[in-house]
């Protein structure tokens, strides 16, 4: 029964995607101008060319490299800061006003300073991604810590867990893991969106984001669209992979699917 429903869902999904592609193809053929709307077959051909030349592979690796730099720093800064602000009231009071001032600034507005501070290097791109990703991680960690059930902290205390260090690592942090996972997931989404902008100013001659601008300048809209689709597809894969890892290993103790 369950399998049957599953198959019906699958069939529906495939039908819907296939229809969208067919409609796209028909419209593109009616318009018949590659530089306005490339067709599905145009994009498919462009994609195959990119894959066989090995170019796409290098672009993906380059973009992922920026992404990992930005995400790595965002996690390394966002989680500890969220922990400290969530646990110690004085730290919260001291840092929160600064955070609230910086947070509303769109990550892309940091590009001039990213170049000024890091030059045209991968660290400049990483910095823009970092700015995009760090706040969701920080805020979710903070909220997760703030919402640690009081009864769990007190249970820990009566069982001999008294020091802040023990309470943080043995109680509040594990209790906040679902919230932190959500923060990292949202942060990755925002960070990946920043990749396009981070590559726009030319820190490298490879990269998915860079290639979108590059081929746009040369009016190769089939290639632009191909890179756009690759960008979306990688975001999807990263998200699914993260969700899978979190649910299978990290947060197996959870009742429902929260992340």
């Amino acid at each position: 029964m369950g399998q049957f429903l599953d198959m019906r869902k699958r069939t529906l999904e495939i039908t819907s995607v296939a229809s969208a592609i067919i409609i796209w193809e028909i419209i593109a053929r009616i318009i018949n101008k590659k530089y306005i709307l490339p067709s599905f077959t145009d994009v498919g051909a462009a994609f195959l060319k990119l894959v066989s030349g090995g170019e796409l592979y290098r672009d993906i690796i380059t973009s992922l490299n920026f992404f990992v730099i930005g995400m790595g720093v965002a996690i390394a800064v966002g989680i500890p800061l969220g922990v400290m602000m969530g646990w110690f009231k004085t730290i919260d009071k001291a840092i929160d006003p600064i955070i609230e001032m910086i947070r509303p600034i769109p990550p892309l507005a940091w590009i001039p300073f990213a170049i000024l501070w890091f030059g045209l290097t991968k660290y400049a791109a990483g910095f823009v991604i970092f700015v995009g990703a760090v706040f969701p991680i920080l805020v979710n960690t903070y909220t997760g810590f703030r919402n640690t059930p009081k009864v769990l902290v007190e249970s820990g205390m009566v069982l001999g867990c008294i020091k802040n260090r023990d309470l943080i690592f043995r109680i509040a942090l594990p209790a906040a893991l679902p919230a932190i996972a959500t923060g990292v997931r949202v942060g990755m989404g925002v960070g990946w969106m920043c990749v396009v902008a981070a590559e726009m100013f030319g820190v490298s001659t490879y990269g998915i984001g860079w290639k979108i601008w590059h081929w746009n300048d040369l009016h190769h809209m089939d290639l632009v669209l191909t890179y756009m689709l690759v960008l979306g597809f990688i975001a999807l894969v990263i998200d699914r992979l993260f969700r899978y890892i979190v649910q299978e290993w990290w947060l197996k103790w959870q009742t429902g699917i929260v992340v």
């Binding site: 009864v151 769990l152 007190e154 249970s155 109680i171 209790a175 893991l177 103790w253 959870q254």
Partner: peptide, 9 residues
């Protein structure tokens, strides 16, 4: 405690 207090993780 009156409320459930086991560590869920």
């Amino acid at each position: 405690f009156q409320e459930y207090s086991l560590f869920p993780w």
